[in-house]
């Protein structure tokens, strides 16, 4: 039922299917095919086609945006309705598990679209790094969506903040396309940094390494945001939003 309720919203359909395809296709269709050089966290210097780099980071951006929006919308939508469901006999664990299953299914669907579509368009033949990176970015950005919803549950403002933040993080800051800012040491504290490093390491390096540590860093990031989100909810700093 939760799944049906989501599927019947045009904005959900748009953000889970059309938006990722538009972002990935646009990056492929627009970007010029010239060589570019950038350094990975592991210290390796990579030379790759700007087109390929932009496509794989485009896929990560698409996943980040979609996950953030879902995490946000589901938190906002079910904040009130879960109380009502509890009243009619569902337990919180049943409600939360159903929401988690739905979220997982939608994101699995979206990530398979993003991964396969970007795989078709790029010369990079790496799937392993791409799948792991999209999953990690989903976790991190769902938790960010959840955090924003717990602080400011206004649909217009919240989705806008998330869309812009995800765009700036994944397309401009942790992305080697934004050459000068990407080289700064502090960008590794941004949420998209470690998943992007995985996709770049495995997509463009001949001797990829350091996946485990990058997964751990990503998961730590995810756990910190989730903890922050629970903390925010518990101390009740949610801003008053008139619906």
């Amino acid at each position: 039922m939760i799944f049906r309720n989501l599927l019947r919203q045009k904005s959900i359909i748009f953000s889970s299917t059309i938006l990722p395809i538009v972002i990935i296709w646009a990056t492929w269709w627009i970007t010029v095919e010239v060589p570019m050089t950038f350094e990975l966290y592991s210290g390796k210097l990579i030379s790759a086609s700007m087109l390929d780099v932009h496509i794989v980071t485009g896929a990560i951006t698409a996943m980040g945006i979609t996950s953030a929006i879902f995490g946000f919308l589901i938190t906002v939508e079910f904040a009130d309705i879960s109380k009502r469901l509890k009243q009619v006999g569902y337990s919180y664990s049943e409600i939360n598990s159903s929401i988690f299953v739905v979220l997982f299914l939608v994101l699995l669907f979206t990530s398979s679209i993003s991964v396969s579509f970007s795989y078709l368009l790029t010369k990079s033949d790496d799937l392993q790094g791409m799948i792991i990176a999209t999953l990690l970015i989903s976790f991190i950005y769902v938790s960010i969506g959840n955090l924003v919803a717990n602080i400011y549950p206004d649909v217009t403002a919240g989705s806008l903040i998330l869309l812009i933040f995800a765009f700036m993080d994944l397309m401009m800051i942790v992305n080697p396309m934004g050459e000068a800012i990407y080289e700064q040491s502090w960008v590794k504290f941004f949420p998209g940094y470690w998943p992007t490093q995985i996709v770049l390491e495995y997509g463009f390096s001949d001797t990829p390494s350091g996946m485990i540590s990058q997964i751990i860093y990503s998961l730590i990031y995810f756990l910190i945001i989730m903890a922050l989100s629970f903390f925010v909810k518990k101390i009740g700093v949610t801003m008053e939003v008139k619906k």
Binding site: K10, S11, S15, I69, V155, S159, L160
Partner: peptide, 8 residues
């Protein structure tokens, strides 16, 4: 119809 879709 919806603000979210318009913003996207």
């Amino acid at each position: 119809d919806t603000t979210a879709l318009g913003l996207y």
